[in-house]
């Protein structure tokens, strides 16, 4: 009986996924699966560099769709202790001191080409994948928090609590450091990161994700034609996340 259930379950899950893919194809929604998605047994390649372009003019002030999708996707539990709770992506409201111009934008790991967190990590647990995604290998993280000190964007969190029932695709645990991983488990399957999907489903489409190395990708084209900037450009880190309208 158990087995029947499992079969049913897997069948249902498969159909559900297939349905989503079909629907997105039909609806022309930008939930595109990348044409160049790699197969499971393929290693990530340095011919790709994943990046994100944030159009701040489309980012709504009170909207937290990206944050909510991220928390849901990675099962980020909050303990109502804002200063020690983890955050992989946060909404920031800015007002220019001299002009009064207001901007709303999401802050997340900027996936630097030359990440300070990777430089300072004593064990090499902080590392950059060949496709430019900056990750923490939690198997070798000793929880020294030096990377949290070194990150210019305050993008890293230390897990201050015991965790249970993590997502199987997003293992996380007490005493290690973590941060946005560009949803590698999704991207490796050719899907978009959860925050991008969340922003699109909410109708804002402020986040554009893609391969910065592919000159024909939508993100490359847009970055090529519209002015955007990286944060703390003075540090020459060449971030993979760029902001328009800031």
């Amino acid at each position: 009986m158990m087995n029947d259930n499992s079969i049913d379950h897997y069948r249902r899950r498969f159909l559900k996924n297939a349905g989503v893919t079909a629907a997105s194809a039909v609806g022309g929604v930008q939930l595109i699966n990348f044409a160049n998605a790699k197969s499971d047994d393929q290693a990530v390649a340095d011919s790709v560099r994943w990046g994100m372009l944030v159009d701040t003019s489309k980012c709504a002030t009170d909207c937290t769709a990206c944050v909510d999708s991220c928390n849901e996707e990675h099962g980020l539990e909050l303990f109502d202790r804002p200063e020690s709770d983890v955050q992989w992506i946060r909404k920031v409201e800015l007002q220019n001191k001299s002009t009064g111009h207001q901007v709303s934008l999401p802050m997340l790991c900027q996936h630097c080409e030359n990440p300070p967190c990777v430089d300072v990590c004593p064990t090499g647990a902080s590392f950059k994948r060949d496709d430019g995604v900056v990750l923490v290998n939690k198997h070798t993280c000793i929880g020294c928090r030096y990377c949290v000190m070194a990150c210019p964007y305050l993008a890293r969190s230390f897990v201050h609590e015991n965790l249970e029932n993590q997502r199987s695709w997003s293992p996380r645990g007490k005493g290690t450091v973590e941060s946005c991983n560009f949803c590698v488990h999704r991207v490796d399957k050719g899907e978009q990161p959860a925050c991008v999907v969340g922003c699109q489903s909410d109708g804002h489409k402020a986040l554009l994700f893609g391969d910065l190395n592919d000159p024909d990708s939508e993100i490359s084209n847009r970055a090529n034609t519209i002015s955007s900037r990286e944060l703390r450009a003075d540090l020459s880190l060449n971030t993979a996340v760029r902001y328009e309208g800031l």
Binding site: P82, E83, Q87, R90, K91, V92, E93, L94, Q95, N96, K97, S98, V103, M107, P152, Y153, L154, L231, R232
Partner: peptide
């Protein structure tokens, strides 16, 4: 992170 801006976020 944002010189010249007043910054507000839930993370202080």
């Amino acid at each position: 992170i944002f010189p010249g801006y007043i910054v507000e976020d839930g993370f202080f």
